[in-house]
């Protein structure tokens, strides 16, 4: 059972002057670049920030399985079918790794795996904006692997030096697997780019569909209170805007190299500031979509997850009851 609400907005600032001796020692550890383990003492605020952040990361992986899952049965060659299956499997596997980290952090609060999953359909946790969007063509499967996973790798690689050691260890493995996803997505995209006019059009349409979501993916440029605290604790070290800029530098030239256009007439690199200029999406509208689950596919995908979890609770309970029965018979024999 959860005994505390992870309500970060109301927690006090970490740099308050009356910080306890334990808090002071903890922040010194952070400043020295030490890694924190689950069993170490940590401020409640640090724990709650991590739980909220990593749960959203893990849940996004699990919800991120859905847009691509739709293309597994339709994948056009045996190799693509296998590649798509493997990729969706990895998304679920990453969710597994991340939720395990959250469970360990949440143990003092009574957090369970069952709770972490049901938080998705009770709206207590959120998932990334990109997984609220539809993937209506095969090119979307390619663009998700290429650009959405590309954006995800930028933000995940930036977390590799996070102060929380169990998260860092899991991210190491996730990033290694994401690099397969990147290659897999590029392979699909290259086949379409090398293909017929209609294949190229399909690819262009998908890029048009995903562009704004990709810009939003990294979050608004202003540094929120929660983000400031995350940076203070070295849970993350880079701002949203820094990550978005890195993404643009890597991917814009590649998109253009394939002869594709980007649906933003204002997009350009300013050599003076060394920054990309882009048309800002409606940050507030996207934020509301994620907060209220009102994207085009939000409710359908949440319903799928709810059915998988609640509709098949009987399976988990039966597996458990059967295990107890087998153990009893084993002890008798």
């Amino acid at each position: 059972m959860r005994t505390k609400e992870p309500d970060i907005a109301t927690t006090e600032d970490v740099r308050e002057p009356v910080a306890s001796e334990q808090q002071r020692v903890f922040l010194e550890r952070i400043d020295r670049g030490e890694k924190i383990e689950a069993t170490d003492w940590m401020p409640d605020e640090y724990r709650l920030l991590l739980i909220k952040f990593i749960q959203m990361h893990g849940v996004s992986e699990i919800m991120g399985a859905f847009p691509e899952k739709e293309w597994v049965p339709k994948a056009p060659t045996l190799r693509r079918k296998l590649g798509m299956m493997s990729k969706v499997q990895d998304e679920m596997g990453h969710g597994q790794l991340l939720l395990s980290v959250v469970q360990e952090l949440g143990r003092p609060l009574g957090l369970t795996r069952e709770q972490l999953i049901s938080d998705i359909f009770t709206g207590r946790t959120k998932f990334h904006n990109v997984f609220h969007m539809p993937a209506p063509s095969w090119a979307d499967a390619g663009v998700i692997g290429w650009l959405v996973d590309g954006a995800a790798i930028v933000s995940q690689a930036a977390l590799l030096d996070t102060s929380y050691a169990p998260y860092a260890r899991v991210l190491k493995r996730i990033c290694a697997e994401e690099s397969f996803h990147m290659q897999h997505g590029e392979s699909i995209v290259l086949s379409l780019a090398e293909g017929t006019a209609s294949q190229r059009q399909m690819l262009q349409d998908a890029v048009n569909r995903w562009w704004e979501s990709l810009i939003f993916f990294f979050g608004p440029p202003d540094v929120s209170d929660a983000a400031r605290k995350m940076i203070r604790y070295r849970i993350r070290t880079k701002t949203n805007e820094e990550l978005r800029q890195k993404f643009l530098s890597r991917y814009v030239p590649r998109i253009h190299a394939l002869g594709l256009t980007i649906p933003d007439p204002d997009l350009h690199f300013d050599p003076l500031s060394g920054l990309w200029h882009y048309t800002a999406p409606d940050w507030a509208a996207y934020g509301r979509m994620v907060r209220d689950n009102t994207g085009p596919m939000s409710q359908a995908r949440i319903a799928l997850r709810q059915q998988a979890h609640e509709g098949q609770r009987w399976v988990r309970e039966a597996m458990r009851a059967g295990a107890a029965q087998l153990a009893m018979e084993g002890a008798r024999a």
Partner: peptide, 9 residues
């Protein structure tokens, strides 16, 4: 609140 069904290993 949801109680755990499986166990961690």
């Amino acid at each position: 609140m949801s109680a755990e069904v499986f166990e961690p290993y």
